[in-house]
Amino acid sequence: MKTVIIGANGAGKSTMFYHFNGILKPKEGTVYYDGKPLEYTRDALSDLRNKVSIVVQNPDEQIFSSTVEEDVAFGPLNMSIERDEVERRIVTSLEKVGMLEYRERPTVKLSYGQRKRVALAGALACEPEVLILDEPTAGLDPQMSQEVMELVNELCLAGTTVIISTHDVDLAYTWAEEIHVLRKGKLIYSGSPEPFFANTEEVALSGLVKPHTFSINSTFESLRGRDEAPYPRTNSQLLAKLSTPDAKIGVIRMIPFDKEISEIPQVCGNIGIYGSRTRRAVRESKTRVDYYFNAIEGCCLDAMSGLDSVLVYDIELESLVRDTISVLGKFGKVPEMI
């Protein structure tokens, strides 16, 4: 389950996270992991933290080593992992966050966004079962936020359980399968996002607002005299729902990227890329690309407007890409993927 903990500042999101990996011990009550109550002995805690990693909101609270690679190696070395394996993990996790070329840099010389990515790489290097991200996109530029969320989706696909805390309702709504809402230290809702956001009063009392896509869909459908459900979470899903049966839907030309990038057909239509390997290859080859970020959505939007497009993606993400596009079927027509 893609899980989001949502609530206003001071609602208790971070405090709760600190209980999930035993940084804090409850005054009363019990925290369970995998059905077993947490133990607070040193060994048990270190074992737990290998499985449950937290990336805190402010990277400066998490980065202590003087160089990037030392910082990323810190977790795995503490787990008494062999040097070769540590090296492999440094490379893969830095590669995932797009910071490999910075591995020997002093951490103090990095920008805020870079430090945030190093903190994430440090958590990834522990290869946790559960990854907890506290406000992962706060303070990041729009493109960098997209990149982080794409990475998060890759991790989910690879089997990591990801929990995100945020007060960004649009982000939460687009991404979450399940939300838990905190208000002044109380858990007031757990479940799929729609019933919560449909409750105007509860949303307001929680210090939140309705996501844009949610409220646009409500008003549109009430005016058209149609059902609000199914609830679109993205603009392309909204468009699919509003599109007429005879509307022309564009085709998405699917190109899985394995090793070579040369074979992008220079056809008409926008070209989108998805996945960290593809992004790197495209940057190096300087191929023309229209959607560097949020490309699946870009191509889907084109299709809904009747335009053809090309989507190049990391081959191992094939099922994720196809599934994301196919969700449009719940709302209207699915673009043909060729």
Partner: peptide, 11 residues
């Protein structure tokens, strides 16, 4: 909002 309008207008 810019994206939704552009695509809806096109559609």
């Amino acid at each position: 909002m810019f994206t939704v309008n552009k695509n809806l207008a096109h559609m």
